[in-house]
Structure formats: C-alpha cells, structure tokens
Amino acid sequence: MIEGKNIICISQTTWHGEFTKSTVQLLSLLAEKNTIVFVEYPFTVKDVVMSLLGKQRAQVSRMLGFKKRIVEEKTDDGAIVKHLVMPPVLPVDFIKNESIFQKFFSINVFIYKNQLRKIIKKLKLNNPIIITAYNPMYGLPMIGKLNEYLNVYYCYDGMDTQRHKSRIYSIEQQFCKQVDGIITTSDYLNAEKHKLNAQSYVVKNGVDFKLFEPHAKKNVSSPSAQKKVGYIGTLDFRFDIDIMEYVIQELPQVLFEFTGYLLNQNIKERLSKYDNVAFFKSVKAHEVPELLSKYDLGIIPYKMDEVNKNIYPLKINEYLAVGVPVVMTAFANLTDFKAMVKSAENKILFKSYIEHELKHDNDLLIKERIEFAKLNSWESRVVEFGDFLEKIIENKYSF
C-alpha cells in the first residue's frame, strides 16, 4: 500500500453526489496514509448563473471565493480529504473553430493552473503525484506545470463527444502518450490504452462491502410474492430501451423498478405507461444497499455498442453484495463474472434469463454471490491501485 505521498486528483466529477464514484472510493482509502487533494469538476460561469437561478447545484459561494475554496472532508473511516473548488471557468466546449476555442480555453487553463499552484504552495505539497481522473481536457495542459513527481491517468470509461465534442479524442490520445502511466477499470479499456502507453494497468471497480453486508439477503422471497426486478443507476444514453420494453411486455407479472438520475427522458416516456413499471428519483449512496436487498433480481440493460464495451459497471458488485442474481446485456466482455452473472446477446435471451433466475434462485446461490462480491471490496482494489502507482514510479525512476 502506497503511503506518505502528496496526491492531487484532477477530477471530472464532484466529490458528493447521488451515486457511488470509483474515484471517491479509492481516494477515500488512499487518504488514510497519504495527503489527498480532490479537485472538484471545473464548473463554468454558466453553471454559476444557472445555480443562482435554482436550476443547478454548484457551490457558488466557494467558487467565487466568498467561502473557503478548500475545505476538509471526512471519509467514512475518519480520514481527511482536502476538497478544492475551482474558480468558475469560461464555457468553451460549444466553440467549433479550433483556433478560437484554444484562445478561450487557454484562459481556463491559466485559472486552473494558478489555483492549483497556490494550493500546492499553501499546503506545501512537494513533489505531488497527479492523478487525472477521466479529465484529459485539464490533465494534458497541467503536465510538467505543477512540479509533479508522477503523472497518472485514471480512466474509468471510454471518451464520448457529449461534453467536449470530437476534439476530446485527440486530446486524450496525446494525454495517454505523455503521462507516466495509466490505470483503467476494464480489460477492454486497458487494451486500448496500452497501445498508447506501455505503462497501462487494470484496477477493476469494487464495492463498499462493509456498507452492503448488513443488508445482504438471507433467503429468497416467498414463492407467492410478486417478483421485483430492479435497476439502480443513471438512466442515460447507455440504457437499451428497446430490450427493456420487450421484457416488460413479455413479463407482465413481474414488477420492474428503476431508480436513478433521469438523463434520457425517452426511457420514462416509453416505459412508464406499463402497469408493472415504477420510476423513482435517485437515492443517496448509503441508501442503496437496503433498496437493493428488496429486489429479487438486478438488471443492467445497456446497449451493446462501441461506447459500452469500455464499461465495468459499479452496480454489478453491488447487486451481488446483497445476494441478488444479476442479468445484463452482453455490452462488455466481463469474464470475471462469467460463472456468476447471466449475459444476454439479445432480447429473447434477456427475458428468458430473468425468468430462469427468478424461478431457480435459492439460499445457497445468495450466499455464493455475497462471498464473491466480498473478494471485490474497495479495500482490496486500493491495494492494487497503490501497487501500480509504485510500479509506475519504479519504472520512471529506475534509470
């Protein structure tokens, strides 16, 4: 386990939120033996305005400097993470002309770099390890600018054009080639990144087993009770509405519940018309285990496309940690779960797997799933993560 290091995370997410984030889980555990600074997602001037109008929830007073930009966050285990909110940057992603884009984005880089340098100086973070978590947009221009000891790219998903347009592909490629090492969350991602950087490794997503264990199922529900199938997570463009609608129509006796942040309105519009479907708003991370334990089966109905091949979903271990069977579409080659999870190549198989698992589940299988998930705890993952950081350090400074 790596220790005694100054680690700064250039993040693409917020620290708090309505779903579990692998970056937050890993940094929370690394904070037990290292100094951690988590840099919040860089909000724009537009986000400030939208938040003042009540349409978003950015930390405006901290962004504008009316309150401290850096505060201490306590993890569940009592460790401290220093949480940094950046000043607002300019909204530039919509600019199509590359020359104009670069001129305005250089202003954002200046703001970002100067704020980080101030914090590094103030906190005396000598020779920091920079971990850029899925944010090559800001990670690339920071290389060599922070007197860093090591620069690592933590990549937990494939790039898409929704936020930064198509320019993000070339930016990420450049970034991959220039960093000291890459840590990904799936074999597929690692195979792609390894072509760009030989120091590329895999640390797959885990589960907060201590949080889920108290809510684990002991036995299957009564045969006479209506079976309940659940999905917890973001409802976005990855979700396969067609397959899900087919299954809902074919299994009217089964109740399907969807809980999460709704980003794709078409999902609710098409599925909520069925009597055996219910939608619920997203819940806090600590509320997820109890909710999952009430299901008879968990589903991951993602589209089988190029983007989703990159995914190692957090929820797969969370479902298993409470003992429920899992049926997913064959969106990614998740060989680790071959003996534990049903993976369907089409809608007919997806439906038949759900029927089979609901009918044949038993107490022994519940126990096996829980034991399997226990092996994938975040505590074990952070040891792997730290070991790879040390390996990248060794490879960089061995000459």
Rank of each mutant, 00 (worst) to 15 (best):
E72R: 07
F104K: 03
K55M: 09
M86K: 06
S99G: 10
L53C: 12
I111K: 09
G65I: 02
V92W: 05
Q56L: 10
M86D: 06
Y112D: 00
M86S: 08
E72S: 02
N114T: 12
S51N: 05
A79F: 07
I107Y: 10
I70Q: 09
K103T: 01
F105A: 00
S61T: 10
F66T: 03
M50E: 11
F105V: 01
R69W: 11
F104P: 01
M50S: 04
A58W: 05
V85G: 09
F105N: 00
I70N: 07
D47Q: 03
G54E: 08
N108L: 04
I107E: 04
P88A: 14
V71K: 12
V89L: 15
A79E: 04
F101H: 13
V81I: 15
D93N: 14
F66R: 06
Q102V: 05
M86V: 10
D93F: 11
Q59I: 07
V92S: 09
V60R: 05
A58L: 00
P91N: 04
F104V: 01
G78P: 01
I80G: 13
K103W: 08
K113T: 13
E73C: 13
Q56M: 11
F94Y: 05
I111N: 05
F94M: 08
D77H: 14
A58F: 01
E73A: 14
F104T: 00
I80L: 15
Q59F: 07
S61R: 13
M63E: 00
Q56G: 03
M63W: 03
P87Y: 14
L90Y: 14
H83R: 09
D76F: 13
D77L: 14
Q59A: 07
G54W: 03
N108G: 08
F66W: 14
L64Y: 06
A58V: 06
G78R: 03
Q56P: 01
V92N: 08
T75A: 15
T75N: 12
K82I: 08
I100C: 14
D77M: 13
N97L: 12
G54K: 03
D93E: 15
K113I: 08
V92G: 09
N108I: 02
V89D: 06
I111E: 05
F104A: 00
T75W: 03
K96S: 13
L90F: 15
G65E: 00
N114D: 10
Q102E: 11
E73F: 15
D47V: 00
M63Y: 04
H83M: 08
L90I: 12
M63S: 05
K55L: 06
P91Q: 04
